[in-house]
């Protein structure tokens, strides 16, 4: 059966359509989820897309965290059952929800960064990166003003020790992110937050590469290798 992958649209989401397109290109069926409906519609996984949810008022992701759709998502993600990928603003929502450690703050340069960014995959032990090779360098789009990942040293040490740093910027972190961290996962590997955008690198015509597609095909491989995860598990 074709996997069904939910993509949440918050007011101010920008990249939900691209995320749905990436899901489709990977061979799954995208399911649109609306921020105001407390229902995941039985999807097998969820993508929280990039953009400026609720205008990024207060802090990026701080208000989206309390959207009705998150009521079902947060416990299912925390339990390890529901794979969730948060891209850019979605990563910020996952940090604000405490599903992932740390926080994303203003780029150290104060400039909005928009470029094709070399990124090194550090961990393939997640639902979203199992089709990559550890150490593999990919080129995907980075476009964010608040992508500077921060956490205290003890948290960073623990993330590195437990293999939960999923991706790093190759070379210097353009946004000042601590230890060059571009993406992290939770302890189960089902929840991944990523500052650059794999969904913008899935087609030759519009992306800097097609290197991002394997985030989505990794999910399908993960779902095939593990029993169906009912999204409603709490």
């Amino acid at each position: 059966m074709t996997a069904r992958v939910g993509v949440v649209t918050f007011p101010g989401s920008l990249d939900d359509r691209d995320a749905e397109r990436a899901v489709r290109l990977a061979g799954a069926r995208p399911v649109s989820l609306w921020h105001d409906e407390p229902d995941l519609r039985g999807v097998d996984a969820v993508v929280l897309p990039g953009g400026f949810s609720y205008g990024d008022y207060l802090r990026c992701g701080a208000i989206a965290r309390f959207a009705p759709v998150m009521n079902e998502l947060v416990p299912a993600a925390r339990s390890g059952a529901l794979p969730v990928l948060g891209i850019c603003n979605g990563f910020q929502v996952l940090c604000e929800s405490h599903l992932l450690p740390g926080a994303l703050t203003r780029n150290s340069s104060l400039r909005f960064i928009n470029r094709a960014q070399p990124v090194r995959i550090e961990s393939t032990a997640t639902a979203w990166t199992n089709r990559y090779t550890a150490g593999e360098e990919i080129r995907i789009v980075l476009k964010s003003g608040e992508g500077n990942f921060v956490a205290d040293d003890a948290t960073l040490d623990e993330l590195e020790r437990s293999g939960r740093v999923v991706a790093r910027y190759a070379g210097d972190a353009p946004n000042g992110a601590r230890r060059g961290i571009a993406g992290v996962s939770n302890e189960h590997g089902n929840v991944v937050g990523l500052m650059p955008h794999p969904e913008h690198a899935v087609e030759e015509l519009t992306g800097p590469s097609t290197d991002g597609l394997d985030f989505f095909t990794s999910l399908l491989a993960h779902l095939e290798s593990s029993p169906a995860a009912p999204a409603a598990i709490g």
Binding site: T105, R106, N107, S108, S109, L110, N148, V150, D152, G176
Partner: peptide
């Protein structure tokens, strides 16, 4: 306020 150990590039600007 941002914690003292958190970089504040806006304040610096």
């Amino acid at each position: 306020m941002l914690k003292p150990e958190i970089l504040d590039p806006q304040g610096q600007a």
